[in-house]
Simulated scan of single mutants.
Amino acid sequence: MNVLTRMWKREWPLHLMLVPGIVLVLIFSYIPMAGIMMAFQKYVPNKGLFGSPFIGLKNLQLLMDYPDIGRIFFNTVYIAVMKIVAGMIVPVTIAILLNELRKEWVKRTFQTLVYLPHFLSWVLLSGILIDVLSPSSGILNQVLGLFGIDPVFFLGDNKWFPYVMVISDVWKEFGFGTIVYLAALTSINPSLYEAAEIDGAGRFKQTLHVTLPGMLPIIVLMFTLSIGNVLNAGFDQIFNLYSPPVYESADIIDTFVYRMGIEQAQFGFATAVGLLKSVISFIFVSMSYILAYRVANYRIF
């Protein structure tokens, strides 16, 4: 008890600092979980959570019978997986290229420029993208017109829309990801490069045999942790850029939940969809942490 008392006297300010964060988590993360009840109810707003009739698993059954649910899940996974893969390749490549720059001011300037889009919201960026990709006045279509290519409706064509989402998301976030891999590069022993140079390896072979193997643990770690985002295709981005003509390729779980719950007031059904997504995401997140521990020796706790 004396040891615990001394620890408490020494560390109570640190525990006190946790109180505001714990209160916010309780208010915004745990108390709202009572709304899960709506997934098993025919929710009526004026009757509330405890007055709405209980219907069991009928909302989930309705979800399984919904004609477009397969396409919605496919769109979500398809866009999310492409974002994960591209979001790994581009930052790794940029980090390696930045590492090869010898002038430090050039390196820092470029790193700052590619990092800036991360701080811009999709509300702002969507307006920019709509103007840039406009089939009538967008600068990209004007450039394509110089080469005799007909205007392309990038945000209104199901063939192009998913790839525009991936490319624009990578452009926004790869600067942030680059920081992680640049940090990994600093942990590589410089003597390995010297030994490779003595053996006759040029810069390209040094990258293949020293840089990439040195970055491999963090690459594996980031990839395994990203598995938990397989069902997160980016609501903010897609919601601000999609439209009814591209629902076939753009409609994901989060936008579907929004339309069902907010626009059509099917609160119980929308909650059931969100609950199913949460359960599946929880499984993926758990798997990602297990893989991260076994493959990259990374532990959360």
Rank of each mutant, 00 (worst) to 15 (best):
A195E: 13
A272V: 06
A233N: 05
A233K: 00
I219T: 13
N189D: 15
P244R: 10
W8R: 06
L185I: 05
V285M: 13
A86S: 02
R108N: 14
Y115E: 04
L291P: 02
G35K: 01
I188C: 02
T186G: 01
S191N: 07
P45Y: 15
F176A: 10
M260E: 05
F110P: 01
L101K: 07
N240V: 05
P117F: 14
L124C: 15
S137E: 15
P45R: 13
G200K: 12
G51Y: 04
T112A: 10
I128Y: 11
I31D: 00
L192V: 01
L116W: 08
S249H: 01
F235A: 12
V220N: 02
Y247P: 00
V143D: 01
N158F: 03
V152L: 08
P213Y: 08
F154L: 08
V230C: 13
Q142D: 09
L97W: 12
G234W: 01
I94L: 12
V123L: 11
F256T: 00
D254Q: 06
T211Q: 14
M222K: 01
T76W: 01
G56D: 04
M88R: 05
L26Q: 10
R259F: 10
Q266R: 02
M287V: 15
D251A: 09
L4K: 08
G51A: 12
S278I: 07
A296Y: 02
Y30V: 13
T178K: 13
M165T: 05
T224K: 05
L63A: 07
T109Q: 05
V90R: 04
S249P: 04
N99W: 13
F74C: 10
G214I: 05
F40A: 09
V295M: 09
N46P: 12
L18N: 00
T5G: 09
I238Q: 04
P213K: 13
M165R: 03
M17P: 02
D251H: 09
T5Q: 15
P245N: 12
V25Q: 00
L155D: 03
D157M: 06
A95T: 03
P135Y: 12
R108E: 14
P151T: 03
T207M: 15
